[in-house]
Design a protein around this nucleic acid. Structure first.
Lengths: 120, 120
DNA sequence: TGCATATATAACCAAATTGTTAATTAACCA
DNA sequence: TGGTTAATTAACAATTTGGTTATATATGCA
C-alpha cells in the first residue's frame, strides 16, 4: 500500500545521486558525461552503481544508443515522494495561524496524561 | 551548501520510521506508545534506534517528562526536502502541456549527438 | 530503601551500502 | 580482425544499517 517509497527516499539520501538528478534535469546525458564531474572523487563503476540505484527507484531511465547509455530523468517518483510529504505540510505551516490551536491541543493532551499512563 | 538533506531522506527511507511520523502527526506520544504497533515485529530498542535516527534528522524532538520521553513531530526538515524536490516539479508536470516542447528539445539533442561524441 | 516502569545503552550480528581494481562485454572503426 | 572507447560486471573490503538480547539508568511510589 505504500512501499515503493523506500527505494525512492534511499536513492535521494546520497548527495552524489541528488547531484546526478540535478544534472539530468538540464537534459539527457550519457554515463560518461554524468560521471565527468565526479571522477576526481570516485571511479566510473561507482557512478554506474549510483545510476543503477536511481534506475531501480524509477528516477531515471536508460536507453541504449550505440555504445552509449543515454540517461533521462523520470520525476514521477519525486511526485510520489512529494505527495507523501505533503500530508504533513500543515505541520510546517502551523507555526503561523495554526500555532494557537495547536498549543491548545497539546495542553489538553498533557492534562489527560495522568490517567492515560496509569494503566501499566 | 546542501547536505543536511541526506540524513532527512535516509530517515524517510525506512517504512517503520515513516509510520512513526504518521503516528506523531496525530499528536505527541511517548516511546512506549509509539512502539506499541511495532512490538510484534521488532523490539523496543529497535524503536529507540529509529527514534534516534528521526531525531538526528531533526524530524522529531524529544522532551523529558518524568520517566517518559514525549516525542513531537518537527516537519521543518520535510519542508526542506520538499523544497529540494519542488525544483523538479516541472518534470512531472511536463507530460501535459509541456510534452511537445520537451520532445522537441530531446530531438534536437539527438541530432547534434554525432558531433557531440566524436571528440573522444 | 527498594521495586516496578520507561527508556537507553552496550555488545554483538547479518545484511546492505559504497567504494575499490581488474576483467568483461558491446559497439564502432580502420 | 583487432584495437579503441563506453559501460558493466565481478570480486573484494570497509562502513553503515537495522535488528537482537542483556544490562544500565532514571523516575515514581509503597
Amino acid at each position: 500500500m505504500q512501499d515503493n517509497l523506500s527505494p525512492i527516499f534511499a536513492a535521494l539520501a546520497d548527495p552524489t545521486r541528488r547531484a546526478i538528478i540535478g544534472q539530468l534535469a538540464k537534459g539527457e546525458a550519457h554515463v560518461g558525461d554524468i560521471a565527468k564531474p565526479f571522477l576526481k572523487e570516485m571511479s566510473l563503476p561507482a557512478i554506474t552503481k549510483h545510476l543503477k540505484v536511481l534506475e531501480s527507484a524509477g528516477l531515471i531511465t536508460k536507453t541504449k544508443d550505440a555504445q552509449w547509455r543515454s540517461c533521462k530523468i523520470n520525476a514521477k517518483p519525486l511526485e510520489e515522494a512529494t505527495h507523501w510529504m505533503e500530508q504533513y505540510r500543515e505541520f510546517w505551516e502551523e507555526s503561523f495561524d495554526r500555532l494557537d490551536e495547536y498549543l491548545k491541543s497539546i495542553q489538553s493532551k498533557k492534562k489527560s496524561k495522568g490517567k492515560k499512563h496509569g494503566k501499566g
